[in-house]
């Protein structure tokens, strides 16, 4: 067997691309708390969970209080209305699934919750969306409800006066 010097073999240059497809499949369970939440959403309910130590209400719940590391054992049904704590206006289309631009993404703090939900704001011009805006959920038609927060199409202004900054300043 006779060898050749590697440097003599490099005339074709390096291989810069190879295909090695990877695909893994998982069967993910939502967990106890999120299963409760998703079953609630499928019935048009928003179910949070409360920490037994600090009484914070997590929305959506993950089954634990990440501050105290304890199970959130009490379930709390929250209203489908709340306050916009922060928002952004999307002006560049980046996905076929996204709404027509401009549209508004926001964090909505439900009344009685200590964490904010992500959602779209509609029913008003994008330029008029603001922190403190009071909104309510616009649900998809009932026959379309499933185990998915997409059951809420978007959030619309309620027409109430804006919330005081102090009411949501700790949740931004």
């Amino acid at each position: 067997m006779s060898g050749r010097a590697i440097e003599d073999l490099n005339e074709d240059g390096p291989v810069t691309k190879m295909h090695a497809p990877i695909r893994l499949e998982y069967r993910i369970g939502a967990g106890t708390a999120q299963s409760r939440f998703l079953r609630g959403v499928a019935e048009g309910k928003l179910l949070g969970q409360k920490c037994p130590v600090c009484s914070k209400v997590y929305m959506p719940p993950r089954g634990s209080c990440p501050i105290h590391g304890v199970p959130t054992e009490e379930e709390v049904e929250l209203p489908d209305r709340g306050t916009v704590t922060t928002f952004c206006v999307v002006n560049i289309p980046f996905s076929d699934l996204a709404p027509e631009v401009p549209y508004v993404c926001a964090q909505v703090l439900l009344d009685g919750a200590d964490t904010a939900l992500f959602g779209l704001i509609a029913g008003m011009p994008a330029r008029e969306v603001r922190m403190g805006l009071r909104v309510r959920a616009e649900w998809a038609p009932r026959e379309e409800w499933t185990y998915n927060l997409g059951n809420i199409k978007w959030w619309e202004p309620t027409g109430e006066p804006d919330a005081d900054y102090d009411a949501y300043k700790d949740y931004i």
Binding site: R27, G29, A30, G31, T32, A33, Q34, S35, R62, G63, S64, H68, G69, V70, P71
Partner: peptide
């Protein structure tokens, strides 16, 4: 363990270890 997520699986084990040691978090 299809019903519990990882956090739900872990929490009671953490609590048990802390109790054994008599320590607070």
């Amino acid at each position: 363990d299809p019903n519990r997520n990882e956090v739900e699986m872990l929490m009671p084990v953490v609590a048990e270890a802390l109790e054994q040691a008599g320590l607070e978090r």
